[in-house]
């Protein structure tokens, strides 16, 4: 899957915005939104929030977890634990990127948040590489991947799955008398 598609899915997440215009309730196919009143916070999906922001029709309230203290705590925990720690949002990386790129003026200490989230991401990806390595070394057939986000899975998907398939083909060809050995490729 393309990373932009993961971002597309993340854009369905809901954020709070403070509009500067007024508009009645909108009845979208995916649910109702609004009504919008100037100065009153309202929840909308990220794709709409970003669009309104680009047209300077609202300011975005950053999600609660997008906060220096909370993220620092998370980074320490992530570095200390061997396993993956729970993330504040299943789309933390995508949302950070989207919100910081389009709406950094509404987010206090945007640069520090960017660095912190990048640190957390790097730590997690390093862990992911390590566990993928041991998964292959031990020739496991099942792994539990709790707390991994879609974007993280997506970064190793193509490489890991293709390698596993390749190894499977090689191995099943080695085993004598195996019926599964008849793999043909183009």
């Amino acid at each position: 899957m393309d990373p932009s598609e993961v971002e597309f899915i993340a854009e369905k997440e809901v954020v709070q915005i403070i509009p500067n215009f007024s508009l009645d309730k909108i009845y979208l196919i995916g649910g109702d939104l609004g009504p919008f009143n100037p100065g009153l916070p309202v929840s909308v999906p990220v794709w709409l929030a970003l669009n309104l922001k680009q047209r300077q029709k609202c300011s975005i309230v950053p999600p609660e977890w997008m906060d220096i203290d909370k993220l620092e705590e998370m980074r320490e925990l992530e570095r200390k634990e061997d396993a993956f720690t729970p993330v504040p949002s299943p789309y933390y990386m995508e949302l950070t990127k989207l919100l910081l790129n389009h709406s950094s003026d509404n987010i206090p200490k945007a640069d520090e948040i960017r660095t912190l989230v990048k640190d957390i991401w790097d730590t997690r990806i390093a862990k992911l590489r390590l566990s993928a390595d041991s998964f292959i070394n031990q020739q496991e057939a099942h792994a539990k991947l709790d707390n991994l986000t879609l974007m993280e899975i997506n970064t190793i998907r193509a490489f890991l799955l293709d390698s596993l398939n390749c190894m499977y083909k090689l191995r099943s060809n080695l085993q004598p008398g195996s019926t599964k050995g008849q793999f043909s490729d183009y």
Partner: peptide, 8 residues
């Protein structure tokens, strides 16, 4: 329920 896995 809610857990994530990698398997065949």
């Amino acid at each position: 329920e809610g857990s994530q896995h990698l398997m065949r």
